[in-house]
Design a protein around this nucleic acid. Sequence first.
DNA 1: TATTGTTATACTCTATAACTATA
DNA 2: TATAGTTATAGAGTATAACAATA
Lengths: 162, 162
Amino acid sequence: MRSSAKRAPRPSPSASWDNPLDQLLGYQLRRASFAMLSDLSAGIGKLDLRITEMSVLMVIHANPDISQSDIGRVLGIQRANMVPLITQLERRTLVSRGETRGRAQSLRLTPEGEALVRRCREAIAEHEARYTKLFSPKERQDLLRCLPRIWQDDMLPEESDL
Amino acid sequence: MRSSAKRAPRPSPSASWDNPLDQLLGYQLRRASFAMLSDLSAGIGKLDLRITEMSVLMVIHANPDISQSDIGRVLGIQRANMVPLITQLERRTLVSRGETRGRAQSLRLTPEGEALVRRCREAIAEHEARYTKLFSPKERQDLLRCLPRIWQDDMLPEESDL
DNA sequence: TATTGTTATACTCTATAACTATA
DNA sequence: TATAGTTATAGAGTATAACAATA
C-alpha cells in the first residue's frame, strides 16, 4: 500500500540524455516536491497516516474548534474533499465533532489524536532534517522566504476581470 | 475539463488561522509546485495538452530517437505509465515510432509535433515569466541551484541495504 | 441569500505485478 | 538473464455540480 521511499535503481550511468525542462522553476519544484512527499509519506506511513490526514490533524491541533471548511481553506483542500478525510479520522477516533455554530461543526483532536500528532511531529522532524542538511542555514532560510511568494497573495491575474 | 488557473475567492480576510506546516520545506514546495502546475496547465491546456504530454514532447524534441523507457527515466515516469502517453501522442500524429533497436523503439516528433513544441515553448516562457518576476535574478538562480539537490543523487538512504 | 456539510462522479498522476519479446 | 514494451488495476489527490440545512 505505502509507496516505499524513493529507491531508484541508480539512474543508468551509461547514456545521458538532455532534459530541456531542467532550467524551469516549475519543473524543479515538481521534482523536489515529489521527492520530499515520497520520503515523508514513508515516515508517516508507519503511523498508518497519509500526508493529507497528517496535515489535517496538525491544523486541528494548532486551531482547536476549527471547522472542516476552514481547514480546507488553510490547506488548499476543497470542501467536498474534506468530507471523507474527516469521516475517516473520526472513524479512527482521532478527531471528534463538537458544538455546531450555524451549520459548521467545531473539530477537536481526541487524546488519541493528540498522541498521534506528537508522533507525527517526530517523523516530520527526522524527515525535514534529512533535507535541511543539504543546505546552508542561509540557503534554507532563503528557500522558506522565497517559496511562499509563488502561491500566496495569489498571483494577480494578468487579465483584468471586468 | 481544464482546471482553470488558480482564481481563489481571495482568502477570507476575516479569520486567520495558524498553519503549523508553514515552516516546513516540504509543505512550501508542495504548495508552490501545485500553484505553478495549475498555471502552466491552463496555458498548455489551450493546446489541448497535459503537462506530462508536453514534457514528453519536449524530451523527444531534445533527444531524437530516444526510447520510451529512457524518456521515463529522464522525467521520473515509470515504464508502465509511458505506454498510454506515447499511444495517445502517436494517435494524434505528434510522435512517430522509428527503427527498433532490440525491443526499444526510437521515437521522433512528426512535423506536427515539432510545430506544437514551438507553441509549447511560448506558453512555457509566458508562464515562467509570470513567476520569475517574483524574484531577483540572484534569488531565481539560487532556487535553480538549490532545488536539484533535493531530488537528484537520490538522497542516500539512511538505512544500509545489506 | 451565503455558507457549510454532503453526495456523487470523474480525471490525472502514480504504483505494482505480471506477461511478452528481444538481445 | 536483463531490458523494453505492454496490460490491467489500484490508490491518492483534485475538480465540478448539485442538494440540504442553517444562519
